[in-house]
Amino acid sequence: MSQVRYSKDHEYISVEGDVGTIGISEHAQAQLGDVVFVELPAVGDKLAKGAQAAVVESVKAASEVFSPVSGEVVAINSDLESEPSLINEDALGKGWILKLKLSDPAEVTALMDEAAYQDFLKSIA
């Protein structure tokens, strides 16, 4: 089982081999409220670390999802097109947004692990 890591923008990435699955954290989905639409990237898009990868919309807000690492999009969760609520129901599972083929796996280790992220959340509360 891969380890989940987090960015300060509340994205998570879980890595298996050289592919990372990216979505938004449980905390982020709770803050955002009911997700009504997700603007997905295209497979083949090349994303730099910190580049906009997707947009998650609730009724009154549109939040950019930034890629926590760099790489090429190899899959997108097209279930979100008809069921954006998957992000609310299961952010870290069925609510994943995209899969990225990592160009630099070292970028992942620089992100926060679960405990560090929880501390980070406490610090911004």
């Binding site: 009911d34 009504v36 639409f37 919309e57 609730s58 009724v59 009154k60 954006p84 609520s85």
Partner: peptide
């Protein structure tokens, strides 16, 4: 009011 609070999530989804 003529209406109670509305389900805006449904309207947008």
């Amino acid at each position: 009011a003529p209406r109670r609070r509305l389900d805006e999530t449904r309207a947008a989804r």
